[in-house]
């Protein structure tokens, strides 16, 4: 590993100016669970490693049932699932936060870091898509917002430009009769990377028998996490039955574009995405009905 400079920014402005000055040779250190390994293994190189955990905005977790959740980009995963209201309001996010690495990793790793690492197999991104999260980005030209579903552009790549920093993720306030679930498949029971994953969110009608609205994010079946808008649109107005879930699974399968690698074959991933979508929908509906 080559020597690099280390800086800990105290404000968003300071971080942005350091990032702008160093360009792509600057790497952001949040929890460090990806970047430190990548630097050590020579997968990425850096002249400057910029620690952003001292910027108060980046480690915030502000929840208000009327305004929603503002989650700092460097806030570690454990703070999500240890927060009773957040856990209840954004269950798919809590599902994902709870299965990234082991407990030690979860005390460091952040959802923002998981998003910025932009792996197609990232566990939190389908959950961000399902919960309609919006990314707040600061840069040399001021601030802008991007839907989480549109953040990743290719494996390991995203919309962040030179000097830009992900500051926070914002989630809409919870609505009644809604539920969400993130499920992934791994060959082992822990400490593994998703072979495929599905995050779903549903809102039911007052009878609880019909889906009024849905959102679905899929992991590890395309070069970026996928937002399954066609499937979500199809589900709106459908009965919340196993048949609907299975059909939605088949539709998700149709839009998947997986590859074969050491973590699974394309055929198997295509199969899994249907299974996971179906199962996640059933669980999310259960949660929306208050029985999950």
């Amino acid at each position: 590993m080559k020597e690099f400079e280390y800086a800990a920014a105290a404000s968003v402005d300071e971080a942005v100016s350091l990032l702008a000055a160093h360009g792509p040779r600057a790497k952001i250190l949040s929890g460090g669970t990806d970047i430190l390994v990548q630097l050590r293994e020579g997968l990425r190189e850096a002249d400057l490693v910029l620690d952003v955990k001292r910027i108060p905005e980046l480690t915030a977790l502000e929840f208000d049932s009327a305004r929603g959740l503002l989650l700092g980009a460097a806030t570690p995963c454990y703070r999500i699932y240890e927060h009773e209201q957040v856990k209840r309001a954004y269950p798919a996010l809590a599902d994902a936060a709870r299965i990234i690495g082991g407990w030690q990793i979860q005390t460091r790793a952040s959802v923002g870091g998981n998003l910025c690492n932009s792996s197609p197999a990232a566990d939190t991104i389908p959950a961000l898509i399902a919960h309609a999260a919006v990314c707040h980005i600061a840069g040399p030209d001021g601030r802008r917002s991007v839907r989480a579903a549109e953040f990743c552009t290719a494996p390991g790549k995203n919309v962040l430009g030179r000097g830009e920093l992900l500051v926070a993720l914002e989630f809409p306030p919870p609505v009644p009769r809604s539920g969400a679930r993130y499920l992934r498949f791994i060959p082992r029971n822990e400490m593994d990377i998703a072979v495929a994953g599905a995050g779903v969110w549903v809102r039911l009608d007052p009878t609880g028998q019909q889906i009024e609205e849905a959102r679905i994010g899929l992991a590890a079946v395309a070069p970026t996490p996928l937002e399954a808008t066609e499937v979500a649109a199809w589900l709106a107005g459908r009965p919340a039955t196993p048949e609907s879930f299975a059909e939605a699974g088949r539709m998700a399968q149709a839009i998947a574009r997986p590859i074969t690698d050491m973590r699974g074959t394309a055929e198997y991933r295509r199969h899994l995405v249907a299974v996971l979508t179906r199962r996640a929908l059933a669980d999310a509906v259960g949660r929306a009905r208050g029985v999950g």
């Binding site: 060959p187 082992r188 029971n189 822990e190 400490m191 593994d192 990377i193 690698d261 050491m262």
Partner: peptide
């Protein structure tokens, strides 16, 4: 796990899946 050039592609404990205590 070898690719078609005879290269091992899972030379890490992440992708060479030994059982963990939970398995």
């Amino acid at each position: 796990w070898f690719d078609d050039r005879g290269q091992m592609r899972n030379a890490s404990f992440l992708d060479y899946r030994m059982p963990t205590a939970l398995d």
